[in-house]
């Protein structure tokens, strides 16, 4: 077994609209298990694009990606879906809950899909996660009845439900006030320190970035500094 949770080798990605241009240029990256890493950089420098590649959702790139030492580049879409379901929790930049479902169901769905626990156990676990972020009162409300900040906290709870080895967030605290940002940060730190989960978060919050284990600085589709 390896200590490296996430390894990117020579990742290059082009966009073709309106003209061909490289959004990611030959990126090499390593994140250790249990590490809490922040990615910062100017808007438009390719942070989101990189995160989509690392999360296995985007398969249209050059280079290689290894998760927990396993090569995922070239795997079938169905295999990648299974990897995302069990090993990766993702918090999107714009929360993205399923509006027809209650918050509780939203949190439960990835675990129901995984099918390792009984629905009863999953429900209890989902409640626990919602409680951690102070949104347990909203559990039975439809997701679209919540404020932006509340939705984002539910989305973070959902990303954690399957105890994924790697948690990725694209500005996961972008919609939160400083108090809730603090709650999320403390929790993330606890996950990495106590449970050995790996965290990779894109953030604009300098304070948030500084307090994490390591800061990766991006500029113009390249890694400017690995922070170590």
């Amino acid at each position: 077994m390896t200590d490296i949770a996430l390894k990117a080798k020579g990742i290059t990605k082009y966009f073709y609209d309106p003209v061909k241009f490289p959004a990611l240029k030959n990126i090499d990256l390593e994140v250790n298990k249990g590490e809490f890493v922040s990615i910062v950089g100017k808007s438009g420098c390719g942070k989101s694009t990189l995160l989509y590649v690392l999360s296995t959702m985007d398969t249209d790139y050059e280079g290689e990606l290894l998760i927990n030492g396993t090569m995922v580049t070239g795997k079938s879409l169905n295999d990648l879906a299974a990897i995302r379901n069990g090993s990766i929790g993702f918090v999107f930049q714009f929360h993205y809950l399923l509006p027809d479902f209650s918050c509780l169901k939203n949190v439960m769905i990835p675990a129901l899909r995984l099918g390792k626990l009984s629905p009863k156990e999953i429900e209890a676990k989902a409640y626990e996660k919602l409680k951690m972020f102070g949104v347990e009162e909203q559990a039975l409300k439809k997701a679209n009845k919540l404020s932006g900040g509340q939705q984002q906290r539910v989305a973070i709870a959902r990303a954690l439900i399957n105890d994924p080895a790697i948690i990725m967030g694209d500005e996961p605290t972008g919609n939160l006030d400083s108090k809730n940002t603090g709650v999320v940060f403390d929790l993330f730190q606890q996950l990495s320190k106590e449970f050995g989960q790996t965290l990779v978060t894109v953030t604009h919050d300098e304070d948030f970035a500084k307090r994490s284990d390591r800061i990766i600085v991006m500029a113009d589709g390249e890694v400017q500094s690995h922070g170590r």
Binding site: M57, A81, A82, L98
Partner: peptide, 12 residues
């Protein structure tokens, strides 16, 4: 929502 389902691990 289909995109989210796929992002959180629902296969085709």
């Amino acid at each position: 929502e289909i995109a989210i389902l796929k992002a959180i691990g629902f296969s085709g």
